Each structure stands twice: as C-alpha cells, then as structure tokens.
Amino acid sequence: MKIVAGLGCIDDYIRLVQAGADEVFCGFVPYEWNKTYGNLFPLNRREVLYYNVQINSYEDMKILKKMEEKCKVPVTITLNYLYYIEEQYELIADIMKKLIDIGFTEFIIADLSLIVYLKEKGLKCSIQLSGECAEINRLAVKFLNQFDLKRYIFHRKNTIEDMKAIINDNRDSNIEYEAFILNERCHYTGAFCSSLHCDELHHLCKVPYELCKIDVKCSNFPLVDKRMEEYYSFSVDEEDYSSDFNDDNYILGSTGCGICSLMKLKKAGVTHLKVVGRGNFIDIMEKDIKNLKKSLDILDSAHNEESFLIETKQSILEGKCSKSCYYK
C-alpha cells in the first residue's frame, strides 16, 4: 500500500517526500477564480485565503512540477467541491488545461457533471473520484465505472467490509482504491456536509454540541449558548501551538487514526492510504508519515494480525492511542 499525503504549501513538498510519501495531493485556486467567485464558492473543500491550505499561482505550480520531476513523487490536483454551476465548467476546464500544459495530469474530482463535461471536452487527464462524492456500495461503483476512473477514494464512513465487498465485486484490476488512515475523522460524510472550512469561522464539525431531547418546559438552549461562549473565548495562537509541538505531546492520528486496521485494509484490497494534511503543521505531517511508513514495514514482516498489532502498539503508538478510530 502506498502513502498519499496532503500538501498545503510547495515549501513542504520535499519534507513530505523525505518522510516517505509515495504521492502528494494539493488544492489549487488561481487568481481568476477568486476574482470572480471569491472563497465562498471554492474549487475544493477549503474556503481559505490566508494560510497554507492550497496553492494560488501557476508559477508556484511550475516550481512544484520541477520538484516532482526531481523527486519522482507524483502530485495530484484536488478539484473536489461537491458541485459547480454551469458557467463555471468552462473556467475549470481552462484552469485544468493550463495545469496539464505545466505537466499535471492527475485530478481528484467529486462532481459527476464536471467529469462528464471534461470527457466531452476531450481533456487528456486521469481522474480519481473524490471521497466527497460518497461512493457507498457496489451498485454505485458499477454505475461510476463508465467514467473510466483511475481510483476510487472511499469516504470516511465506508467500513472495511464495505470496501472489501466493492473491491471484490469490481473486477477491473487496474482500478486503485484509497482509504483514509490518519487525521480529520470528521463525523460528517463529506458529500452531505455543508460546513465552511475557512479562515474566519471554526469548522462546524469542531463546534461543541450535545445530542439531547429538547424539553419545552426546561430549555437546553441557555446551556448551549454558555458552551458556545466558552468555546469562542478560547483561542490558540498558531505560532505558539507549533512551538509547543514536541515528541512528548505528539499523538499519532490525534484527530483520526486507522493504523490498527492496516492488515484488514490490505486484505480488503486497498492500494493507497490517505494522510489528511492540507493546513496541518508540517512537523506533525512529517512524523505521521514516518510512523505510517514504519507501520507498513511491520505489516510486511508480520506473521499474522495479532503479531502486527502487538508490534505496532509497542513501537509506534507507545501507549499514546488517540482513541479516535476510523475503523473499529
């Protein structure tokens, strides 16, 4: 299985590669898109302008391509917003043509209408179906096969049993399958998430909430308001946070982890493992990838699942399980 890592800034590419990433994916939003549509209608699921989540210039993409040619680790461009309006398709196709001219031919897309449009335009590129599309069962994948997709990226809520059934039923051996393995274990399914992921607001999935029955006589809303006030009164300076990072407070996959399920994922037929990282601190991403690489080495030499789990928990997790399991 290969490691696929998220890239938020071209400066981090070399470190991701040196850490052990086999592939890198990144978002790209050029000036002409932001000028027309702003950041509330993004090209991908990051409504962001002011920190390192995506690349914003063709010149940077040219530099990234030179690094890719040097390091031999491919880069895939993410254009995985849930849908686009009709007038945007021509602009998206033009952006993709410019990227293809630079040398990028791999794209992650969620909008099926855009995929059809690109096929009709005859764009020469490979398409991976984003997990934001939420391919959820064998019938869905059988329908989607008509689009000549290179890879299916399973969404966060696919169980390993789901993945195994889909892969076993899909007889085309050339198709690749990617599953989440580290970070961002969101409780939403991407295809049904309407939250913004922007500079000004906390992500909806990170806002505290409580599931309860609303009592008309004794309203819960004052308590919710109080918790919201406490939440927004607490802020962490990004620079201070990054300077506090060290081996002692590092936990592998603190916001989502599937390390213990590596053997099950391999047996199911998963070929690629996604380490979510656009916008994450590069120091944390680097350690995540290195530890995942070590886990894969343990997997290759393990005699069975029990020996793999024992060695992984001793040498990788070291008693610091995040308890945020992707696959229980």
Rank of each mutant, 00 (worst) to 15 (best):
A165D: 12
K119V: 07
K290Q: 11
G277Y: 01
Q146S: 13
Y232R: 06
A140E: 06
G190Q: 05
G277H: 00
H303L: 09
N304S: 07
Y188K: 15
S194F: 08
I259M: 14
S243T: 10
D215W: 15
K294C: 00
L49H: 06
V207M: 12
S324K: 09
F245D: 03
K98L: 05
S219C: 13
I115C: 06
S173D: 14
Y13L: 06
L299A: 10
C26P: 00
I289F: 00
C71K: 09
E311Y: 04
I14A: 07
K97I: 08
C198I: 06
I136V: 09
S195L: 08
L273S: 00
E178Q: 15
E132K: 08
L139S: 08
T271V: 10
P30R: 10
S173F: 14
H197K: 10
I167H: 08
V48M: 07
N168K: 14
L223E: 14
L79A: 10
C260I: 01
K65F: 15
K142Q: 11
K62I: 10
S194P: 01
D12N: 15
N280S: 11
K294Q: 00
Y188D: 08
S195R: 08
S173M: 14
E230N: 14
N158V: 04
L223I: 11
S233V: 05
Y152D: 02
I127Q: 02
N220G: 12
K320A: 09
L204K: 10
N220I: 14
L16V: 01
D169C: 10
H187I: 15
K119C: 05
L309E: 04
E32H: 12
V224K: 13
L292V: 01
R227P: 01
K97W: 01
V276I: 14
N291V: 00
R15L: 02
I63K: 09
S301A: 05
V53Q: 03
E23N: 07
E305Y: 06
L211D: 14
E238G: 06
L123H: 03
L265A: 07
K70C: 09
L91N: 06
N291A: 01
I166G: 02
K264Y: 06
I77S: 03
M96S: 01
G269V: 07
F221Q: 13
Y231T: 11
I92E: 04
R156I: 10
S243H: 12
